[in-house]
């Protein structure tokens, strides 16, 4: 990846208050680097879709500026929007048009001359070429989602927004989609995705942004985030159960399980004065304990996310069908 320093998308002080009084975004600042895959995570109603809508022209911001590849999204909306492709969350498609016609239509709508070869390449890349003359209403949900992606790519956007691209999508399509996203990144397209499936962000994203109640809580390189907030657990199985923690380990970050058979050492990713595993083993040896098994596990992005958001303590209304 060749992410150069000038941002492809620059958002400053973006706020949105809906007519109902609901404050969906509050003073959001965000910069997206050219060529990266950026995952925007957040609970339901956090403002993910509003943020995307504001960039794409579906939502009128209450305040703030948005620059797309240097073009103001309001004053210079033609140049800004021509550079953006949007795959919406809802499966909104024409019903009676054919796949090929609807993708060509999208290309025209975004001001590009007809290009059959390009449309063919996009359709083939999404396994849609065989279905090019099929009427959209006859397609399955997964195929319709592919059509939406094809439409968003038809005008060769610089930035592609994928709003919950894999919600309700089967495993095969999800894998196809991940492969497609990586391919697009190799071609230099910047990808911003929102997702519920945190493993998706963990698998694909270069950077992760967490949004909660309309505010960007954190933006970080995924690897830094995992290192900084992630924890490593070292679980040691004992041959004989213990009643209490051995004296050698009292005062350290070590816990004994209820059945007395497992010792757990938690190392926080942020480093610090934790007990080193080697030192732990030396002390275990000194205490004369027989070790039957050793296992390590790292916390996932999901654990980190849940941790960060729940620390902000607010009532979570999980209403997702």
């Amino acid at each position: 990846m060749a992410a150069s320093s000038d941002p492809v998308l620059s958002i400053r002080g973006l706020s949105k208050t809906y007519a109902t009084g609901q404050r969906a975004l509050e003073n959001v600042d965000l910069e997206i680097r050219r060529g990266e895959i950026f995952a925007l995570l957040g609970p339901n109603g956090a403002g993910k879709t509003t943020l995307i809508g504001a960039v794409c022209g579906l939502v009128q911001p209450t305040a703030g500026t948005i620059l797309v590849d240097g073009h103001d999204a309001v004053r210079d909306f033609r140049a800004a929007r021509a550079r953006i492709g949007l795959v919406p969350q809802e499966l909104a498609t024409d019903m009676f048009e054919t796949v090929h016609a609807t993708v060509s239509f999208s290309r025209g709508l975004f001001g590009k001359r007809r290009d059959r070869a390009l449309v063919e390449r996009i359709l083939r890349g999404l396994s849609l070429w065989e279905k090019r003359d099929a009427v959209i209403s006859s397609l399955s949900g997964g195929m319709k989602r592919r059509v939406l992606i094809a439409k968003a790519l038809a005008h060769e956007p610089v930035v592609l927004f994928l709003d919950e691209p894999t919600a309700g999508v089967d495993v095969e399509l999800r894998r196809d989609m991940w492969a497609m996203v990586r391919r697009l990144r190799e071609e230099g397209v910047t990808i911003i995705l929102t997702t519920h499936y945190i493993e998706e962000a963990e698998e694909m994203a270069d950077r992760v942004g967490i949004i909660d109640r309309g505010t960007i809580v954190l933006v970080e390189e995924k690897t830094d985030l995992m290192r900084r907030y992630g924890q490593t657990r070292l679980s040691i199985g004992l041959a004989e159960p213990l009643d209490t923690l051995p004296a050698e380990l009292v005062g350290e970050d070590v816990a004994l399980s209820q059945d007395g058979l497992t010792l757990t050492l938690v190392q926080s990713g942020a480093g610090g004065a934790g007990l080193e595993p080697a030192e732990l083993f030396r002390r275990l040896g000194a205490a004369g304990l027989a070790i039957s098994s050793v296992a390590t596990s790292r916390s996932s992005l999901e654990d980190i996310f849940v941790d960060l958001v729940s620390h902000r303590e607010h009532p979570r209304h999980e209403v997702r069908s």
Binding site: C56, L58, F77, A80, A92, D94, S106, L109, F110, G111
Partner: peptide
């Protein structure tokens, strides 16, 4: 009605 208006609204027109 179908929601495809999103495309019209996000297009440079």
């Amino acid at each position: 009605f179908t929601g495809t208006i999103y495309e019209l609204l996000s297009a440079p027109i």
